[in-house]
């Protein structure tokens, strides 16, 4: 066979293989939209479940997920930013820094169920927080730390070194330089990183399984020390544990969860384009 023909065959094969990845994704989105769209009513989003969750809406699950996710990002964001500041602005090239980096890589690779176990043993039992929004939020906060640190560090790194030199040369201290010049200019990157990790943890189930999620709570949460319903766990429950579940509700729940994640991801993309136009140096 001539090399030309081999190349043609090989390229066609690669193209077909790429479709194998491409088509199922469209299939998933397609099936969710076609079967779940009917469920997307104000009533479904804004009312309580009825008839052993076989009817009514999923408001408590939506509120629960938003609450857990917002709490966890407000814990992880400041800590993650400061950690990135340390790595990018203060850390020297030494053994400690190597170990920190290795730990971050490892934290990123720890299975989510292990975070669930850790959250249960540490936050729920040892710190006596109980199965609660705050215990789940703390567990997820540790889990999203690696990605926040990495994205923040990249955006800190993109702030020109000359800005730091100018500020330091005016006799401004190191921390004030970081606070007044470096962080404000790294903000766009930090923000997009934060939203991206919100999107990721909003769909996490395993870490909140034993730390925050409740099978069924018939009211909206009153405080952070209560257990709550959460969208991903709710989807798991209604699709596996409850017989005779109306299809509309399961698909509707899955669609809302995916929409929540996708809206966040699109916000990131739009923000990125917006900031790319505004911040040029």
């Amino acid at each position: 066979m001539s090399p030309r023909i081999t190349q043609k065959i090989a390229f066609s094969l690669l193209f077909l293989v790429s479709l194998v990845v491409f088509i199922p994704v469209l299939f998933i989105i397609g099936i969710l939209v076609s079967k779940g769209a009917a469920a997307l009513t104000w009533e479904f989003i804004f009312s309580m479940p009825k008839d052993g969750m076989r009817g009514g809406g999923i408001l408590p699950a939506i509120v629960g997920t938003l609450l857990i996710v917002l709490c966890s990002i407000s814990i992880a964001l400041p800590v993650g930013i400061l950690a990135a500041v340390y790595l990018n602005e203060y850390a020297k090239d030494n053994l400690l820094t190597r170990i920190i980096q290795l730990s971050i890589v490892n934290l990123a690779g720890v299975p989510s169920i292990i975070y669930g176990l850790f959250g249960l043993a540490f936050f729920v039992i040892m710190l006596n927080l109980g199965v609660s929004v705050i215990a789940g939020a703390l567990t997820l906060a540790i889990m999203e730390l690696p990605s926040i640190i990495t994205t923040t560090r990249n955006s800190l790194n993109n702030v020109p070194a000359s800005f730091r030199e100018v500020s330091l040369s005016l006799g401004v201290s190191r921390w004030q330089t970081i606070r007044r010049v470096v962080l404000p200019n790294a903000l766009p990157g930090i923000m997009t990183g934060a939203i991206l990790s919100i999107a990721r943890i909003a769909g996490e189930t395993a870490p909140i399984l034993f730390t925050a999620a409740a099978f069924y709570v018939p009211h909206l949460p009153h405080s952070l020390s209560e257990q709550v319903m959460a969208l991903p766990y709710h989807l798991y429950v209604i699709s596996t544990q409850i017989p005779n579940m109306p299809e509309k509700i399961t698909y509707g729940t899955a669609l809302i969860l995916v929409l929540l994640v996708l809206i966040l991801s699109f916000t990131v993309i739009i923000l990125r384009i917006f900031f790319r136009k505004r911040y040029k140096w």
């Binding site: 998933i28 999107a199 189930t205 991903p232 989807l235 798991y236 899955a254 969860l257 994640v261």
Partner: peptide, 9 residues
């Protein structure tokens, strides 16, 4: 970006 529980479902 699709949550694993959705893919499982």
């Amino acid at each position: 970006a699709i949550p694993s529980v959705v893919i499982g479902f």
